[in-house]
């Protein structure tokens, strides 16, 4: 870990996290209860309470490049038990959302899985397990993921090889496409409809 210069607190980042999560990170008094109950602690590079501390100190780079924000399972244990009633899981969500927009992926496999899943939804309108797995293997090169489970589950007839495609899948695909073009980015939306249209066209072209 590098020496942190506390003057170089990225206050815009702190505000962005607070706006996106609707939480005030200054309310955190570092009791450590979030870390205490976190089931994913053993997979994190920074514990949840340290992530909270890094946000308080405006250490954008460390937060956004951490694996912790991607590995948070969203189980809400921290949120449920926070004595200051901070939605800690919501803060982790916000950091991940910002990290994605800034193209920082602290845990590649996780973001690849999310992408595989969303692509499956984009193609079919619904998620398709076999398809998601295939895409995930494609994106990560982890072609042996869970193959040992195949003989267990395939005979149960629970994993149809073909997806259920819905009639309105185009509508769903459009939503995801617009999202991928960045049309829902807060800065863009906040700027108003005029800019919105212009950049939309730009993004499409």
């Amino acid at each position: 870990m590098e020496t942190v210069c506390l003057n170089k607190s990225d206050d815009a980042f702190v505000k962005a996290v607070e706006a996106e999560s609707g939480q005030r990170v200054s309310r955190c008094y570092q009791c450590g209860n979030c870390t205490a109950g976190c089931p994913m602690f053993f997979t994190f590079d920074y514990s949840v309470s340290r992530i909270m501390r890094l946000i308080q100190a405006g250490q954008k780079e460390q937060v956004l490049s951490s694996s912790a924000v991607w590995l948070c399972a969203g189980c809400e244990t921290c949120t449920q038990r926070c004595p200051n009633e901070i939605d800690v899981a919501g803060v982790m969500d916000a950091c991940r959302h910002i990290a994605r927009r800034e193209k920082k992926f602290g845990a590649r496999a996780v973001s690849a899985f999310f992408k595989a899943f969303m692509d499956s939804v984009r193609f079919n309108g619904r998620s398709h397990e076999v398809g998601t797995m295939a895409l995930y293997m494609l994106y990560t090169g982890r072609v042996w993921t869970d193959v040992e489970l195949a003989p267990k589950i395939l005979p149960k007839g629970k994993m149809p090889l073909l997806p259920h495609r819905i009639a309105g899948r185009k509508e769903v695909a459009e939503i995801i496409n617009r999202f991928n073009q960045g049309l829902s980015d807060p800065d863009l939306v906040r700027a108003g409809p005029a800019t919105h249209d212009a950049s939309a066209k730009e993004a499409v072209s």
Partner: peptide, 12 residues
């Protein structure tokens, strides 16, 4: 030091 962040810090 910021022991909660787990490291050394400096302030100007």
């Amino acid at each position: 030091a910021d022991t909660l962040m787990g490291g050394q810090v400096e302030v100007e």
